[in-house]
């Protein structure tokens, strides 16, 4: 078994005038480890390699990156899913400024998330116990609330690449719909009126890269479609 060829995107703002690809050889002993484990092995070879990681089980959303051209979470992506011809190319998430190596500046991504007012709004006084919600109403939140803000979707979306300052992007819109769909939220009109401009929602051209890469199997395109339906119903 020959060693795995790893091509890693490197950039250190203090020493590098431009990013470059560094080649590594790693002996995985034929085991089908996760890409994150591979990075840990690289970091032992070269301590200067920088990447984010936390939960190592696909729920915290830290280690979104581009592996052989496809966005995903390093910690739940086995080598067998990405390696081609015994080679893997690791790059930062596309479309966001790179801070160092695989670490990107996610400020624009978070700004779009904050823009959709990602919190429950209810103008009625809270009861002494919980607000009641039927299981059917609650079911509408499935496939929405599970988002981990890893940015794999938004950074694979060409519309977000071109207008990250104006287009909310699939992650933000999925969360927007999570609150629009919540029977306990009373700010539907305000939420919708904030989205009816030509950019926020309507820059989605249904490319569906977001659906293809979401590591949690969520479907932002469907949520965007639902928002459009609600906008239409609200305005006609």
């Amino acid at each position: 078994m020959s060693k795995l060829q790893v091509s890693l995107y490197r950039y250190n703002p203090e020493t590098d005038s431009a990013p470059y690809m560094q080649e590594f050889e790693v002996d995985t002993q034929g085991r089908d480890i996760m890409v994150l484990n591979l990075l840990e092995m690289l970091k032992e070879q070269d301590a200067t390699v920088a990447y984010r990681r936390s939960c190592r089980e696909g729920v915290c959303g830290s280690d979104g990156m581009n592996m052989n051209g496809r966005n995903g979470l390093a910690c739940i992506t086995p080598l067998s899913h990405v390696v081609k011809n015994n080679k893997v190319v690791l790059r930062p998430l596309p479309g966001l400024p790179v801070i160092r190596d695989l670490v990107v500046d996610m400020a624009l991504f978070y700004k779009q998330y904050e823009r959709i007012q990602p919190y429950l709004q209810n103008d009625t006084p809270a009861p002494a116990i919980e607000r009641l919600q039927s299981p059917e109403e609650r079911d509408k939140l499935d496939g929405l609330y599970e988002c981990i803000l890893c940015a794999c979707c938004s950074t694979s979306c060409p519309s977000f690449w071109w207008n990250p300052d104006k287009f909310v992007g699939p992650a933000g819109l999925l969360q927007s719909y999570r609150f629009l769909a919540d029977s306990r939220d009373t700010a539907t009109r305000e939420r919708l009126s904030d989205l009816e401009d030509p950019f926020s929602v309507f820059r989605c051209r249904g490319i569906m890269n977001c659906v293809a890469v979401c590591p949690k199997g969520l479907n932002p395109t469907r949520a965007i479609g639902k928002i459009r339906e609600m906008l239409l119903a609200n305005a006609t």
Binding site: Y119, L120, E130, L132, E137, Y145
Partner: peptide, 15 residues
């Protein structure tokens, strides 16, 4: 719950 935590529900709507 009032802050929006999406608890699963019983048929009577409670947590």
């Amino acid at each position: 719950e009032h802050m929006g935590l999406p608890f699963s529900r019983f048929d009577n709507g409670r947590i």
